[in-house]
Structure formats: structure tokens, C-alpha cells
Design a protein around this nucleic acid. Structure first.
Lengths: 336, 336
DNA sequence: CTGAAAGCGCTTACAG
DNA sequence: CTGAAAGCGCTTACAG
């Protein structure tokens, strides 16, 4: 069964290619009955070629999404939202992992360009930000999601890192904690600086002196956080609570605490950032700052689509986080 | 900066379009020096249009991947492997969520067809299997990954459900457990039947009588497993160990056990299936059967690529699972 | 409302 | 080794 083309349909409907093309695009320039007949035939018979269409329309109804690693649950959540929003509007999405390798990111972006995607979304990439110049020069609409580079001229969707972290640290301080640690991300992300900023503001507001020894660096993954918590626990006066850069770090910290025989939250309160799906099922369930991942993906897509259709669109949308209090935090005096 | 075409390069190199086209494809039919010059110009200047090329070559160097839900960590792991393998071979991947909705799955498959993908991979979809006839009729190469439908005529990559589950249940039985529960998946997946099969074979081999009351159904997610574990715990003689359909179910069971004040593994041993990234960090770390997700994705891609190039390829690849023993299981007599 | 014709940007026999 | 020409399958002025 050969792939049918517009021409075949034209033949069996005994009209011209032009008419078929119009009917398939629901053009008003075509007789109702003729149009319906053609559409019915097309439905049964086959489909048009997007390639041929794109060649003349110069649109592909396609967007490219570059992520550092689709296996990261935060990224996967965002991509889910992007795909949903794109599909709703009739767009298909190309997905490419950069693995945070600049060379690979360049490669995939070029392949996106060659495929003439109508727009590109870059997620959480430090690398990506370095290429903003290249990307903007390509003059393909671009939206950055949780961009990690301060100086961008691109449109972006960002979580309110500072505000969310402030809420997290305030929660801990109000519980009565005075020695509150922060396990950050050593990769020099802007988000790390912002989250630390919110943490510091909360401490200051609660009259807690900033202690540099309580601020250590993980890698955004469980392993790095385990080490980082180890450092914190070696302190003369170890923290009674730790705010972590993200849920994955909190997961590692929780694991490490358990390995050392500490109870969470009785011996150590822990707060994360992200609210991954699994976080509610941890033992204990994790107190964290929710990022609406799917929603952020949808937002980024809508922004991009507006860019593509040249509609006005806000340069940067900042999404608030939401503190979700669960069982990994409690007052320090419940200790022992 | 306008998008350059082959024609522009031809002009500045003062050769014909044909020559540029050949040089860009590294054809031996072109003078070395000329070729290099052209390639250099092209590198600086711009790129060819994949759409125009596809129109004549009838290939798009593109594959479509349909998943039920990219936010599922198992699926995300598989997609990561697919994307890696595809990128290596110069293919781009379209990603589409079906959300397990048949209508949406149809839609995305059609859009894949319209975009003339060279091949399609369908992951873990019960729905997908229903459309195998439609898909095969499209005569686009198709590979199913962990297909949930028994009667397919398509190529597929599957985990050895029966063998993995047998190993999991044997592990429990050898630890000394005699009352071993199974929390399955109520969605009627073939994988559920196979995993239960492995469980039953192990019991039989260890001389443990099969007790239907110990076999309950979850939904493959934490919530369903919580309920299911609740049922098991209401039994007169509740199980001392439970094998779960997947890690997400084990996560829910662990959460429910904790909520009821049971200690894992002392009061209840728990085994999962998948070995998600997070499973090693759970409290306690989860004993489970590892599915090499990324590897399976790569395998599916290689099979598909072979199909695309008409090379011979095995109809069905069965991947062995690996039992990973961690801290969520112990002998029953350690109880109390 | 409809059709003939040009053209989108490539690739590939065909003829040198 | 190179170029002119046809053609891939559509869309869209243009002319009825």
C-alpha cells in the first residue's frame, strides 16, 4: 500500500491538486460538498507530506526541545508539559539530550536548524545559555526555561528561586531552628545563588547570624548531597535543619542521615526544592518547595508559540514556588 | 541574516547547485579541493533544508517515539537511551505522549506519518498494541518496547518478566519467607501476568502452596499499591514479604507500611521491579529487579535502524533482569 | 468556487 | 569531476 499523495486524491475526486490542497486546509475557497468529499477521501486514503508543505510554507509546525538529561525527573516533568501544550496546538516536538556537553548541544541545535523547527526551548541548561548568542543569531524563536545564566536577552520562564527558598528557610526558622544548613550546587548555577539568597534573607530576618560553615556544596544529585551532609555533621555545632538545593539532594541527605543513625526529622529536619512526584512518598515524606513542572513547560510553550506567531509576549515570566510542609521537618526541641 | 540555501553557496563558490549538493553529502564525485572549499563555506554560511532533501530522498532521518507518559521515570530512562542511540546515528527523535488515551495515540501516530518519520518506537503501551494493525499497515518500521499485548507480529524488545520475578520471589523464599504476597497491576498488562507467573513458579519450586488471597492488584503507582497492601495486611495471616509489580508500587507499599507503624524489612520485606534511579536511595534502599532502561532504549533504536535499512534483525529481543539485593528484605525471623 | 502554472530547495540520473 | 534539467509533493498568486 503506497503512500498516497494529494495528486491521487485529486484524481479520484476528479478535481485539481489545488482544490485538494485547499480542501485539506479547510479553505473557504472551496465548495462545501466538494470539500467534504475530498476530506472523506483523504481520511480513508492517506496523508499529505509535511515535507512538501513545509518547503513552500516555510513552517514546520515543529519545535525543538533541548534538555540536559531527560532522565532527570524535573526535566521529564517539564517536557511532559511542553509536549502536552504543543500537541494541543498541532505542533510536534523534537527532543534532544545535550548531556550537558557543549559539543553535543551545538550538534543538536544545528540539527534543529536544519530541520527548520519553528522554535526552540532550552531547559535548565548552563551550556545552553552560553549559546544564546548563537541561538539568537539563528533568529529562530527561543525560550529558556529555568535558565542558568544571568545575562540573557532571551525570553524565559523561571521559578522564583529566591522567594521559594525564603519560604523554606523561614519555615525552618519559625519551627525554632537556629542552626540551619544549606546544601547547594557546586556547578555555579544562577539558581543556586538565588536559592542561597532566599535562605540568607530568611536568616537575616529572623535574626540568625550567617555562618559560612553551614553553607556547603553538593551537585544537585544524591551523591553530592551525601558528602555535603557529611561535612555539615562534622561541625562542632552541626545544624539541626538543612535546606537542600533540590529534592534529589534532599533524598541523598536523607539517605546519609539514615546511614549515620540519625532520625529525620527528630535529629535533623530536611527541606528540598522541586516537589518531585516521589517526594511525597519518601520516608518521611519530604517538606519541599513545589515547582509546577508541567505548568512551567506549558507556559514556555505558549510563550514560544506566541513568539512564533509574532504576538506580543512578556520577556520573562516568573513562576512562584509553593512551600509544601510534610513530615521531614519538626521543631528542634523534639530532638531525643 | 537570511537562511542560506545551497544556491547561495553555489554562487559564492561559483559552482553549480549539483556540485554543492554532492560536496555536502561528501560524494566522491567531487574534486577534493572544491569539496573542502564548499564545506568550509557551508560551515560558515548556513545549512541545507531537511525538508527539501526529504522530499526527494524520501527519508527524514527521523524517528517517532510514542510513550504513555514521559514523566514516568521508567519511560524517561528508556527515552534517554533511545535519544542517545539515535543521535549517534544522525537521527532526530520526535517525542509524543499518548497519556494512554487511544484517541491521542492515534493522533500522534498520524502526525508521525504525515511527517514521514523513518520508523516508530512505541513504549509500554497497552493502547499501542491495539494499533499494531494500523501501524503495520502504515508500513513504517515499528519496534515495540515492553509491549503489553501478547499477539503482536511486530519487532520488540522486552524485559524477561518471568525470569526476573522468579529471581525476586526465590530471593524471598530462600530468606525463609513462606507467606509472600504479590501486588500486581490491575490494568491487565501482559507484564503483570508474566511477573505473577515467575512468582508462582518460585513458590511452587520452594514447595510453598499458592494462596490466592496473597495476590492483590495495584495500579503500578504508589496509590494503588497502598490500598493493595492494606488488603494484604487485613488478612488473618498477613504476608511477611511482598513482591511488587514495580518500584513505584513498592514505594507506595513502603509508605503505607510506615504509616501503619510497620518496619521494613523487619516486619515486612519488600521487593520491587525496575530499579529506578531513586530506588537505591529509599529508606530502606529497595531490593529490586533491575531493568536496564537506557540499554533497552538503545536496543530498540538499533533494531529499528536495522529495520529501516532493511538489514536482518531478530524479531524479539528478550533482555534479562538482574536481582539487586538491598536493605528492604531480610529473613522473617528477624521480626521483632 | 476552480484550475494551470510557478516555485519552494534540494537530489540524481544523464550527458558530457 | 561537473552542470543542466527534471522532479520530489505541496501551496498560492493569478486568471478565470
Amino acid at each position: 500500500m503506497k503512500r498516497l499523495s494529494i495528486k491521487d486524491i485529486a484524481k479520484t475526486a476528479s478535481v485539481s491538486n489545488s482544490t485538494v490542497s485547499r480542501a485539506l486546509r479547510n479553505s473557504p475557497l472551496v465548495n462545501r460538498e466538494t470539500g467534504e468529499l475530498i476530506r472523506k477521501l483523504a481520511e480513508e486514503a492517506g496523508y499529505r507530506s509535511a515535507a512538501a508543505r513545509s518547503l513552500v510554507t516555510r513552517r514546520t509546525d515543529t519545535i525543538g526541545v533541548v534538555v540536559t538529561n531527560i532522565s532527570d525527573p524535573f526535566v521529564a516533568g517539564v517536557v511532559g508539559g511542553i509536549e502536552d501544550a504543543a500537541e494541543e496546538r498541532g505542533y510536534s516536538v523534537f527532543l534532544a539530550n545535550s548531556n550537558a556537553e557543549p559539543a553535543r548541544e551545538m550538534r543538536v541545535v544545528r540539527s534543529f536548524e536544519e530541520r527548520r523547527v519553528d522554535g526552540i526551548i532550552v531547559t535548565s541548561s548552563r551550556v545552553g545559555a552560553l549559546h544564546v548568542p548563537m541561538l539568537t543569531q539563528m533568529e529562530v524563536p527561543l525560550v529558556l526555561l529555568n535558565n542558568q545564566h544571568p545575562s540573557e536577552a532571551a525570553h524565559s520562564v523561571m521559578i522564583d528561586n529566591e522567594g521559594g527558598s525564603y519560604a523554606a528557610a523561614m519555615h525552618l526558622a519559625r519551627l525554632g531552628h537556629r542552626r540551619i544548613g544549606y546544601i547547594g550546587d557546586r556547578n555555579g548555577h544562577q539558581s543556586d545563588a538565588e536559592r542561597r539568597g532566599g535562605y540568607e534573607r530568611a536568616l537575616a530576618e529572623m535574626g540568625i547570624a550567617y555562618d559560612a560553615a553551614l553553607v556547603v556544596k553538593g551537585d544537585g544529585k544524591p551523591e553530592g548531597a551525601r558528602e555535603a551532609l557529611g561535612q555539615l555533621l562534622q561541625l562542632e555545632a552541626p545544624p539541626t535543619a538543612v535546606f537542600c538545593y533540590n529534592d534529589m539532594s534532599a533524598l541523598g541527605a536523607m539517605h546519609e542521615a539514615r546511614a549515620r543513625g540519625l532520625l529525620v526529622p527528630e535529629d535533623l529536619s530536611l527541606v528540598g526544592f522541586d516537589d518531585l512526584y516521589i517526594s511525597q512518598y519518601l520516608n518521611p515524606p519530604l517538606t519541599t518547595v513545589r515547582q509546577p513542572m508541567g505548568e512551567m513547560g506549558r507556559l514556555a510553550t505558549h510563550t514560544l508559540l506566541r513568539l512564533i506567531t509574532k504576538e506580543a509576549s512578556s520577556q520573562i515570566v516568573k513562576v512562584p514556588g509553593e512551600l509544601i510542609v510534610r513530615a521531614s521537618t519538626c521543631p528542634p526541641w523534639e530532638k531525643r
